[in-house]
Design a protein around this nucleic acid. Structure first.
Lengths: 187, 187
DNA sequence: ATTGTATGATAACATATGTTATATAACAGT
DNA sequence: ACTGTTATATAACATATGTTATCATACAAT
């Protein structure tokens, strides 16, 4: 009985995702989506209870994109790669990075997080490489994470323009020097 | 002939500054200022050509506040103190920090900046302490700055809650270990 | 006391945006 | 062909916000 759908939920979400990727959540609104969809705003409110709900779904998509970045496997050591991926995400998806990791309000589900609940596996895996004590490995990890996050923030806000090569060099040399210093410091 | 002014430019700016300090620029608007002023919006548009102009003046105030933080003199070594002040600013004025240093659009006038134009004086002063070569001192400084900025961003967004003591410990130990590592690395 | 002007209040206009009421039309089942 | 349901368009309403037009008023100079 009904006419077939001209506009699907997915199409709408995809457009919304693109808008947020380029201009952030602030510039996402119903009419802008409608325009890109070549439609009125009705299909949007037909497919979503409200713009808030739509935004939540976009947020989930964004978080999925982040996870895809973090799951990339390369020939780099996994620990190093996770840092590089984090920064790569900040560089290639700056708006997304800002949404996930540069807003206090947004309760970002972080996995590269610093807290008492740092995965023991990460720490222990790190210990195999560094031979530091558990507690020192933990501190070391926090420092590496802060440094990585620092680069990522600078890159996401376009404050500095490092190339991938420069980033790798910077990260590697810093971690190595920090580790060396750590060892000589109080072991 | 005219009635005496009831609302001065300064009063208006002070209220605007407070609003931005607590809730950011997004939630600054004419009616909110007017309400806190117990007035209509007229005094605002009488004293400022537009809200944009008012915002620019608030931005200048914010930058001045930042400079005041950075000019604080203590018994700490100046280089160390500048890092601590930067983080203290991020902690005590998180909205301001975000406005100045976490927005790409805002052309933030940075002085603790990483660029080819890092003040030679800072580098050379640093050399007296570290005894590194000029180029190495430069790289070292960039790394210290990235780390400092990383902590500041985490603190400003309330992602982690470090105490002043923890921050100083973290910064000091990291810089020391980075420096030690640096020296052993390729000098 | 009168008066002209600066200051302010009120209310309106303009625009942006979320949301909804109403009408239209497409299409499957009859 | 008719009909009922549903997807969509159009247009409106509601709210938020920048801005301005209009009017009122206080006060210094006369």
């Amino acid at each position: 009985m009904p006419p077939s759908k001209k506009y699907t939920k997915k199409e709408i979400l995809d457009i919304a995702y693109d808008i947020v990727e380029h201009d952030g959540f602030e510039s996402l609104n119903a009419r802008k989506i409608a325009r890109k969809l070549n439609a009125s705003v009705q299909p949007i409110f037909f497919n979503f209870p409200s713009m808030e709900d739509l935004k939540k779904e976009v947020y989930c998509q964004i978080y999925q994109t982040y996870q895809e970045y973090m799951n990339i496997k390369t020939d780099q050591p996994p620990y190093k790669q996770s840092g590089l991926s984090y920064i790569k995400f900040a560089k290639e998806k700056p708006q997304f990075f800002k949404i996930l990791f540069m807003h206090p309000t947004t309760n970002s589900p972080e996995n590269f997080i610093v807290s008492d609940s740092i995965g023991d596996d990460i720490i222990k895996k790190g210990q195999q490489l560094t031979k530091l004590s558990y507690e020192e490995q933990k501190k070391f990890h926090v420092k590496v994470w802060i440094f990585t996050h620092g680069i990522a923030c600078l890159v996401a806000t376009n404050t500095v323009k490092f190339s991938e090569k420069e980033i790798e060099e910077l990260l590697t040399s810093t971690v190595i020097s920090m580790l060396k210093g750590y060892r000589g410091e109080n072991v």
